[in-house]
Amino acid sequence: MSSHGFVWRAAGFSLRFRPQALLANLWLLLALVLAAVLSLGLGSHAIAPGTVLAWLSLGDIGWTPSVILGQLRAPRLALAMLSGAMLALAGGLTQHVTRNGLADPSLIGVKAGAALCIVALILAFPAAPLGLRPVIGLAGGLAAGLAVGFLARGTSPLTFVMIGFGLSWCLSSVLVVLLTSADIRSLQRVMLWLAGSLEGADWPGVQLASLILIVASAIILSLARHAELDDIGAEKAATLGVRQAWLRSLCLCAVVLLVAGAVSVVGGLGFVGLIAPHLARLLPRQSLRSRLVSAMLIGALLVLSADLAGAMLFLPIRLPVGIPLAMIGAPMLILLLWLRRNRI
């Protein structure tokens, strides 16, 4: 395994670099930055590259372009990248811990819990400020995550995910009950939100999402080495002093935080958590940590390009990001499942 790369050691720390893996992530990062800059310039209102560069260097470019760039495009694309990265990270970790390539974290009850609470808010208080949604969503998601954790205490990760599915169904049924009495216009509004939409993207949302992503990725990436040991086998890992239960519950908390956070800011965006980690596995062999980083970058790239497609394909109609994502994601997922059918 350590035939490639070199190891850097210092004061009890050791970091193993694999040039190939590092290179792949650098390429991904470059692609992401390019895509971000490109999508700053693209939209229904054409803005010349020169103007974008002037705005980036804090130059004065007039009211219209600066509002479009600063209040509409920039927060939107930042949130697209953040939510993509959050869901991909949660997905990659869940799939690693459960050793099941189909464990989509957004299906294990957390998303349903957050969605149920936010939909109840939308229906009961249509005038409630947007800023309240993340709070309510996080509370609902955490409650659902805790419920799953409680029900699944002492069982295998696989059972944990299955219980998550069950709770998801239960919560969706409650959602259906809520929606049966809803007016058709509210129903469509709720469905729009459930499918995922970046329409409300603003800087406070971006701040919240980045905070959650930074905290969760710090937890996960610092534990990734232990998790990798965990991969070798429970007995061996135990002898190496890995406290599995503790590790797992910490990972669980991070995943719940990520999914609930993503749902609260962009709604029920699907597929990223499944597709991004699988795409990352197509890259050259990597350590868990750098594979998670690749997955995050790929997830960000996916949501960003889906939003761009939604904005540009059917002008002047703008599709909510969930729709192009489903259209891109569905065939891609089936193809990936087929390509990796023996390793899922």
Partner: peptide, 15 residues
């Protein structure tokens, strides 16, 4: 301006 989601950029451009 669009159907489900309206085009906010077009709104901004119209001042």
């Amino acid at each position: 301006l669009g159907a489900a989601e309206i085009d906010l950029e077009a709104v901004a451009a119209l001042k």
